[in-house]
Structure formats: structure tokens, C-alpha cells
């Protein structure tokens, strides 16, 4: 197999004239243990960048560092397309799960109202909030869920609700932590399709921690492979999935199958 050299290729400034996000020399150390070091990543707006890697490699830690939830070294730069200056980017975040039991009396409307209003939601809601929430939910095909309890939603429905919440207001950077379990394949595909459409409509920079390599291969523009505490390889899905370290980590079977799918796709394209 041909060895692709996927060192961080897209370094330097944003010559393309679009807005972009640069993660420079990120490092995270917690209670004396180094979790991440020398993480460099460059993300263009409108790109979906998937972060893959073995369990415990530091993918979720990277997301939390970008969010600013845990302290890190290095810096996060966001360059706006218009004024070319660096601003503090706003972040949308879709967590893997919510910490609540299935009997919790928190409705979807409660969740949005708590995020959007200052008035305590146990006292009253502002009049306009219901309309705003409905509009938000419409972006992810979830209008009908507004009065449901969060605990009564299926895994896929909850993801779409959380996605709608993260997009109100529209952030500069959208961070997605894909659930490891609890969502059926169909729900996951719907989720990816929605994300894909939203990215084009709103020119979002999306960073996605993913465990489903098939969907990554289909929907991601760029893939970053996190291993041994750092990003070992960045590139297009084809480049990264033919990297030897990646193949070793995820097993040869998957890679072969992926290449076969790719070949089929190329063959189909030729036929058309």
C-alpha cells in the first residue's frame, strides 16, 4: 500500500479569503499526566472536520479544551472573513448525552427556555419563546418534539434537539460529540445529513468527534487522527484512511472494505 504523508498540510495564513479557525500548539496536562501535546489544526469555514482515534486518545479532551472548559496551553485563533481580525469565536456544542434520568420532568421547551431567558423557568416563560424554539427545532426537523420530556426522547431525537439548541444563536464553530451508543443507524444518518445541510447553509466550521468511520468517510471534508496524545495525521478521508497508523488502529478489514466502497463509487461514477 502506498504510504501517504499526511503531516499538517494546511498551515500558515488564510489566503483563501474565507474565515478560518486555527488551533495552535494545544497541550493539556491534568493532575500531572499529559493528555494532549502539540495539537495543530486548521479549519476552514464550511468544512466538516472529523476527529477519530482509539478510545482514550484524548478526542473528547480536545473538544473540551477548545470549549475552554479545561485549561490548556497554546492558542485558539479565529479569523473573521470580513475584517481579517482575530475575534473570540462563539461556540455551539452538542454533547454526547445529557445527565438526567428518564423520569426527569424537563421538557424540550424547558431546556431551550433555560438557555435563552433570564426569567426563572419555574416562574414563567416569556411569550415569544415558544415561537423562537419552534423555529430553532425546525432547522433539525424537530418541531413536533417541543412539549415532550427530554427523558422520553429517543437517542436520535435528543441529538437533533441538542443540535437545534447549539445552533441558536448560530455559532462560529460547532463542536459535536457523537454518542457512542443509543442511536440507531438510521437516526445517525439523519443526524449527519442534517449537519451536512446546515454546514452549507450557515457556512459553519464543524468539528466532530466520531466513532462511525463509514459515516466519516461519507460526510467529512477532512479527518484528523488523534493517537498517542496528539494529531498524528490530517487530510481528506481517503488520505487518512490509507495511512498505515490509522489502518493499524482500526484494523485492516475496515480499511479494505472502505477502499472497496470507494472503488465501487468510482466505478459507478464512471458508468454514469
Amino acid at each position: 500500500m502506498k504510504h501517504h504523508n499526511c503531516a499538517q498540510s494546511c498551515q500558515g495564513s488564510c489566503e483563501c479569503g474565507l474565515c478560518c479557525t486555527k488551533i495552535k500548539n494545544f497541550g493539556v496536562t491534568r493532575s500531572g499526566t499529559e493528555i494532549l501535546r502539540d495539537v495543530n489544526l486548521h479549519i476552514h469555514c464550511g468544512d466538516l472536520t472529523a476527529i477519530i482515534g482509539p478510545n482514550g486518545a484524548g478526542k473528547s479532551t480536545l473538544l473540551k479544551a477548545i470549549l475552554g472548559e479545561i485549561p490548556h496551553t497554546g492558542e485558539l485563533q479565529f479569523l473573521d472573513a470580513k475584517d481579517k481580525g482575530t475575534i473570540r469565536p462563539s461556540m455551539g456544542y452538542v454533547p454526547q448525552k445529557l445527565d438526567l434520568d428518564s423520569s426527569s420532568p424537563t421538557s424540550v421547551l424547558d431546556l431551550f427556555a433555560a438557555a435563552h431567558t433570564k426569567l426563572p423557568i419555574w416562574f414563567t416563560y416569556p411569550k415569544k419563546i415558544r415561537e423562537r424554539v419552534r423555529e430553532s427545532l425546525a432547522r433539525t426537523q424537530g418541531e413536533h418534539l417541543i412539549n415532550k420530556r427530554l427523558g422520553a426522547l429517543s437517542g436520535g431525537e435528543l441529538q437533533r434537539v441538542l443540535l437545534a439548541l447549539s445552533l441558536d444563536p448560530i455559532p462560529h464553530i460547532l463542536l459535536l460529540d457523537e454518542p457512542v451508543s443509543g442511536i440507531d443507524q438510521k437516526g445517525l444518518e439523519l443526524f449527519y445529513k442534517t449537519v451536512s445541510i446546515l454546514r452549507e447553509n450557515y457556512d459553519l466550521s464543524i468539528i466532530l468527534v466520531s466513532h462511525d468511520l463509514n459515516l466519516v468517510a461519507e460526510y467529512a471534508d477532512r479527518v484528523a487522527f488523534v493517537n498517542n496524545k496528539t494529531i498524528e495525521c490530517v487530510g481528506t478521508p481517503q488520505e487518512v484512511f490509507s495511512n498505515e497508523k490509522v489502518i493499524q488502529t482500526f484494523g485492516l478489514d475496515w480499511s479494505k472494505r472502505n477502499l472497496r466502497v470507494e472503488k465501487d463509487r468510482v466505478a459507478n461514477a464512471l458508468l454514469v
Binding site: L67, E69, P95, D110
Partner: peptide
């Protein structure tokens, strides 16, 4: 106090990272 902090507390209790992102 409860009126002022409740909404934020609810978000934080459901997912600290989500609360942080807001």
C-alpha cells in the same frame, strides 16, 4: 437568588460542557 441562578444551574446540571459553551 433562586430566581437568578435557576436557569443556568439547570443547564449546568444537565451537561457542564454545554453550559460552558453558552
Amino acid at each position: 437568588l433562586w430566581a437568578v441562578i435557576f436557569n443556568k444551574l439547570l443547564l449546568a446540571s444537565m451537561n457542564p460542557s454545554l453550559a460552558r459553551s453558552r
